[in-house]
């Protein structure tokens, strides 16, 4: 590992933590402001929908079908683990036993 490798780790670590700290400080300031407080109530849902949309962007029709199936499961069960398991089963099943579409390996996920 050369100096540049270490520098990249340092910059990323400082940048990532700096953003988290700014979020913490900013969030507390918002909490003290009643008018802005309602903003935080709706923000989580919007951010999660953005994560879903990002992971579906440019995805194959197979993935969109699986996403629709997962949405139905989510509406019916309101359970994360069941939706996750059945969603994975659906796309795995369509890829390998049913519709024979493109594998989903091209899609990456924004793990945080």
């Amino acid at each position: 590992m050369i100096l540049d490798h270490s520098l990249l780790i340092a910059f990323l670590a400082v940048g990532a933590y700096g953003l988290r700290l700014a979020g913490l400080i900013g969030g507390q300031a918002i909490l003290r402001n009643e008018r802005l407080k309602t903003l935080l109530d709706d923000l989580p849902g919007c951010l999660i929908v953005a994560l879903v949309a990002t992971s579906l962007a440019d995805a194959s029709p197979l993935t969109w079908i699986a996403a629709a199936f997962a949405l139905v499961v989510a509406i019916l069960t309101n359970n994360v683990v069941i939706t996750m398991a059945l969603g994975f089963t659906a796309i795995f099943g369509m890829q390998y036993f049913g519709m024979g579409g493109k594998k989903q390996s091209e899609k990456t996920f924004n793990f945080g």
């Binding site: 796309i91 390996s105 793990f111």
Partner: peptide, 13 residues
């Protein structure tokens, strides 16, 4: 990867 997408769909729900 889709397992995560499905999980986020459930969380949005």
């Amino acid at each position: 990867g889709f397992a995560f997408t499905a999980a986020f769909i459930a969380m949005a729900r």
